[in-house]
Simulated scan of single mutants.
Amino acid sequence: MSQESANKARASVSMFSDYSVDTDERASHAPLKLLVVDRLGTFSADIERAARSLEAFPKVVTSSRPTRLLEDVRIESPDVVLAAPEEMTVTGLRRLAQIHRASPKTVIALTQGATPISMTEAASCGASEVISYPASTVRLRNALHRILATAEAVRGERVVIREVPAPAPAPALAAVAPAPVGNATIFTVTSPTGGCGKTFFATNLAAYLVGVTGGRVLLVDLDLQFGEVSLALGLRPQRTISELINEESMEEVFSEYLMEHSSGYQVLSAPADPFAAELVGPREATRVL
Rank of each mutant, 00 (worst) to 15 (best):
R65N: 12
A149Y: 05
S128I: 05
F57N: 12
T185W: 04
F200W: 11
K33A: 10
A6Y: 04
V21L: 15
A177Y: 06
P116I: 07
P171L: 01
T190H: 09
L233Q: 07
Y265S: 03
A270T: 00
D38E: 06
Y208F: 13
R155D: 03
T150E: 06
T185R: 12
D79F: 02
V288S: 02
A285L: 01
F187R: 00
E284V: 01
S263K: 10
G281L: 00
L218C: 09
L110W: 02
A149K: 15
G182F: 03
S17K: 05
R74D: 10
P31M: 07
R236H: 14
S132N: 13
D79N: 15
L219G: 01
A272R: 11
L289D: 02
F187T: 04
K59S: 13
S128C: 10
V159H: 12
D72K: 09
F187N: 00
S230C: 08
E25V: 13
L244D: 01
A143F: 00
V217A: 00
R155A: 01
A206L: 06
P237I: 09
A135H: 06
A184T: 11
S17V: 07
V288C: 00
S44D: 08
H261T: 10
T150R: 11
A175L: 07
E121F: 04
E121W: 05
G227N: 07
A6M: 14
R101C: 12
R10W: 08
E157A: 12
V159W: 09
T106I: 15
V280G: 02
V212Q: 05
E248P: 08
T137M: 13
A114W: 09
S44G: 08
R236E: 11
L205M: 08
A6N: 12
N142V: 05
Y265A: 00
S249P: 08
M1C: 09
V73F: 02
Y257G: 00
F275I: 10
L235H: 08
N204M: 08
L224M: 03
T23H: 15
T203Y: 03
G264I: 04
T150I: 15
D18E: 14
R26C: 11
D38N: 04
E251P: 05
A175C: 08
V229P: 04
V220M: 05
A151N: 04
I241C: 01
A27V: 14
F43Q: 06
D72I: 06
T190R: 11
R39E: 12
V130I: 15
Q3G: 10
Y257I: 02
Y133K: 06
F226A: 09
L231S: 14
T62E: 10
A270H: 01
V160T: 15
A6F: 06
V107T: 09
E163L: 14
S191R: 05
V217G: 01
E163H: 15
L235Y: 06
R101L: 13
M88D: 03
M88L: 09
F57H: 14
H261L: 10
H100S: 12
L258N: 03
A272I: 11
A122E: 00
V210I: 11
I161Q: 15
L258R: 03
S17L: 07
V107R: 02
T42Y: 13
P274T: 03
L173P: 02
L279K: 01
T42K: 14
E243T: 08
K33E: 11
T150G: 06
T23Q: 14
S53C: 10
S63E: 09
L93H: 01
L222N: 09
I117S: 04
T185L: 12
A27H: 13
Q112N: 07
